[in-house]
Design a protein around this nucleic acid. Sequence first.
RNA 1: GCGACCAUAGCUCAGUUGGUUAGAGCGCCGGUUUGUGGUACCGGAGGUCGCGGGUUCGAGCCCCGUUGGUCGCCCCA
Length: 415
Amino acid sequence: MSKDKSAKIATPQAVRGTQDMLGDFADRFQHVVDRFEHVRRLYGYKRIEVPVIEPTAVFARSLGETTDVVSKEMYSFEDRGGEGVTLRPEFTAGIARAYITNGWQQFAPLKVATHGPLFRYERPQKGRYRQFHQLDAETIGSDSPLADAELLVFADQLLKELGVGEGVTLTLNTLGDAESRDAWRTALVEHFMGHRGDLSEDSLARLDKNPLRILDSKDPKDRPIADSAPDIDAYLTNEAQDFFAAVTAGLDAAGVAWERNARLVRGLDYYRHTAFEFVTDRLGAQGTVIGGGRYDGLIETLGGPATPAVGWAAGIERLAMLLDADVIDNRLDAVIAVEDDGQLALAMKALTALRGSGFSTEIVASGSPRKRFDKAAKIPAHALISIGTRDGESYINIRGDSERTIAAKAIVQAL
RNA sequence: GCGACCAUAGCUCAGUUGGUUAGAGCGCCGGUUUGUGGUACCGGAGGUCGCGGGUUCGAGCCCCGUUGGUCGCCCCA
């Protein structure tokens, strides 16, 4: 820190909506990723890595030109070669692109999982950031409802392993196949046009852009109109009905609790058939923890072969916020207090021996020697080792109760 | 893009109707006490009160602007 105030340098600030994580939250974040990696292996999902940056067309074409994500939330720019590129706002489109350009059709049906940062130019608020992070799982090349069900069971198990299953419910809907969805959409537009004078301003805009979204409007003005709108059920083809029945049967067989939400629609244009969200009321305005669905038309939209696919994404920060306070135990195995600098060499020897044997260990050897014990005692650890001099002799005292403490004790005493 | 609220020490905050050198707790540094001990006490470092204007004899406090943060709308994980 400079004492010369006239020479004070202005510190650049973090970019809005990005976050720096230290300690507890960083641990929780990593815990979510660790459990995800564990569960995705149990379900046979292959690990993949895809670029954070893609040609803008990858997202613009697949998400729908009129969606908010494409029209106003993408971090897009020209690179030095004049290429239009975008920081990925979601995983699915990039994975679909990779599937096509790498010829992964040969592995279909392909089950893949990944996680990492995404970017959306939005106003930050609780549970929402400009750089945020998701877990992602996709099954590409399967038109079986069992694929949908497997993905949902996977998500359910992940939530249970994280200990957040209780406060989160799976809400499920079907948007039908293309035929069903178009018929329903036409009926909805007709219904809403009949009430256009009573709709909120936002919903009038939605009527042009994405009439389905009026269904889950939060505006009380819209509720009676949305609630009286026709359900998709009447417009579902037999195939679409059978498909949805097979998905829910799969969930029931696996013992996964779910709720039908006939009002659930999802923002991106590519969804077909199954649409779902795992929601909670514990995150303020951002209730969705995991969201996804089937996107049978997407890969074709990107110039690939007609390929059915289904997947979901989960917000890592949102899951991390839901974790109980006690799930993270980052206590060290031991902490050493050096109460006499004359014993520093002995303390360093003990420190090295413990760390070398796989015991996480920290040392307190600075500041007033008589305060080091207290300082060390405040560091969360299973064992507290004090090293000093008493009656002209060096001494080592170890306090702690766990089995690892006893093992650590043996190592130190062998010195 | 729109709205509400907030901004004082490294952190969490107090600061009366506008009134002298702006405080506390925690943390950090030093000392005393205790001497197998997570205690208590004393002292120290650290702030142009986010920034810029204005009102006033006088502004941390009132007004305007600006930047940043938080929460909500929109949208989404």
